[in-house]
Write a protein that binds this DNA or RNA. Structure first.
Lengths: 326, 326
DNA sequence: GTGAAAGCGCTAACAT
DNA sequence: ATGTTAGCGCTTTCAC
């Protein structure tokens, strides 16, 4: 049924070893032999069995991408770019959804480890210890910095700093930050950037949360922020910000006249609200591509220091921010 | 380095065959032997090499999901559910993004075929002939009906019928339909349902397009629809509808007072516009789960007739539809 | 430059 | 109920 290297070998009147060489190390066989083999291979529609190859080479030609939530366009943006980059290097990608459960995540990594050459971990909830416990598999971390493990991070602290500067410039002096999960490395980063920026711009900060980084979280957080008497709300991400917007609408408040709102991530859908959401662009595609490239490079040169790249973020001013009501 | 079945065997003082049996067919070994093996396995942290197993069983324990665009929440909704279902059956999932290119898609399927036990194809652009050409690999089609190939389809024709009925009941008599790609099986389905519904409800239909099923497509289509003098616009999907809404806003038109707009898919983001989008709910999660289940079932019973399940859709009336201006 | 043979980690007869 | 053995499809020494 399925056609193997042996079929190609007999058709080309060579040994299986020669077929193998002709495909993997072309310069080890005479040109005419090689072309004969290649002809036979294409004619038969031969596709090497990667599992069998992997058994002996120890390389699967696969990478894994672990994300907390496939329904979240933030992660799928990264996934898409990583997948494209991997395909370009002839690697297939396994994807696993951890449902934002760190425990499940570790299990997933363990299970996947055997089937892939390396993994990209996008999971914000993992502790350093948990990550270290699986670092025998080549890893690239996304938005999480850990010495010794390659990582790609987007500079969200700076992004939030840009938001604070923007709001301060508009005249806001009391601002709420709706925090995401405190176990998230990137949220902690933002909070640090936030504190620094608040001090620098003489802004009084009301930190609320943690909230679920979802629409419902925004709904829930809004009333708290309102009660705190702020004139601007910075949400952990766009999804949460959309929740805030919805809740403010329900409460009869006008954005940005009564209150300013900002998101984070710059999901396409965030630009489609009315007014459009002021937010911070995260370089998702670049991040996904970079992470995949890092991992791929790691396969060749597994030694050397672990690279860490920091990608810049950019404030996108749209319609949900304005000077506070007088 | 990596720990194999042999390590477990020697630690448990049994043969490798016994270890294999203890893990795969527990009832073939004595309980105490099995527990000894299991203990050794867990103590060593043994994870069977699935590639090696697959080499002999012919089963990889993997399935593939091919989608046109990982940035589209419609597909990731399906993917997520399929992944969860597969994981539940101890199958890992490969994901590939075809970039909406049918040619690339076939290549992807061919490449993946060796590494998976079966595939879920979510790609609307594939022709029947193309699908048939790869049907030697177990396949489940999403939103595409082809005799002999198992499929899960969402009844979008009926969904669009519900939209027409709704608009007709509101008093609209001239309605535009912004068509998606004509190569899409599901779009053709909708157009058929549409024609029938229009006749039934005495509605005059202006079919425009095809347009790209994206935000830009909606932008582009809007002016055409306006020029056609309709009082309601039915978009191919929510993303396109959001484009329509944006363009109408730019043109100074009020929705739903001046004109009604409907989407399709019920993406979460569609409910967050203001006014919220009237649309049709597609049972994405059910579809993903069903497709995965179908595929998994197919592995056990590869014969028998190909199952086809049709999932109901549901009109979700929100704020973008109202009676036409008088 | 090419072939023969060993073996990657595992399961499936076939023995016992 | 358990052990022995023969491969699954491939790459890679090692001869020639």
């Amino acid at each position: 049924m399925t056609i193997t290297i042996r079929d190609v070998a007999s058709k080309a009147h060579v040994s299986v070893a020669t077929v193998s060489r002709a495909l993997s190390s072309p310069d080890l066989v005479r040109p005419d032999t090689r072309s004969r083999v290649l002809a036979a291979a294409t004619e038969l529609g031969y596709q090497p069995n990667r599992a069998a190859r992997g058994l002996i080479t120890g390389k699967t030609g696969n990478i894994g991408v672990v994300v907390p939530d496939l329904d979240n366009p933030f992660y799928t943006g990264i996934l898409k770019a990583a997948q494209t980059r991997a395909a370009h290097a002839d690697h297939a990608v396994f994807v696993a959804n951890s449902d934002e459960d760190p425990a499940a995540e570790i299990t997933i990594v363990r299970t996947m480890a055997k089937q892939v050459d390396g993994l990209i971990l996008c999971s914000p909830g993992l502790t350093d210890a948990q990550i270290a416990s699986v670092a025998d598999t080549p890893l690239v971390l996304l938005n999480h910095l850990l010495p010794g493990v390659p990582s790609t991070v987007m500079d969200s602290a700076d992004g939030l700093g840009q938001v604070v500067a923007h709001l301060a410039a508009l005249g806001h002096s009391r601002i709420a930050y709706l925090s995401g999960p405190h176990t998230s490395w990137s949220n902690e980063q933002r909070r640090q950037g936030l504190a620094a920026a608040a001090t620098e711009h003489f802004v009084e900060l009301v930190e609320l949360g943690p909230f679920a980084p979802r629409h419902e979280g925004g709904l829930q957080a809004t009333d708290l922020a309102l009660a705190a008497g702020v004139t601007a709300i910075m949400a952990y991400n766009d999804i949460m910000a959309l929740g805030v917007l919805a809740r403010l609408r329900d409460r009869g408040l006008s954005v940005p006249d009564d209150i300013s709102v900002t998101g984070f991530d710059n999901l396409v859908y965030a630009s489609l609200t009315s007014p459009a959401l002021t937010t911070v662009r995260m370089p998702l595609a670049v991040a996904g591509r970079t992470a995949a490239t890092m991992l791929l490079d790691r396969f060749d040169a597994t030694d050397g220091p672990a690279p860490h790249v920091v990608l810049p973020t950019q404030l996108i001013v749209r319609g949900t921010t304005a000077p506070p009501p007088t």
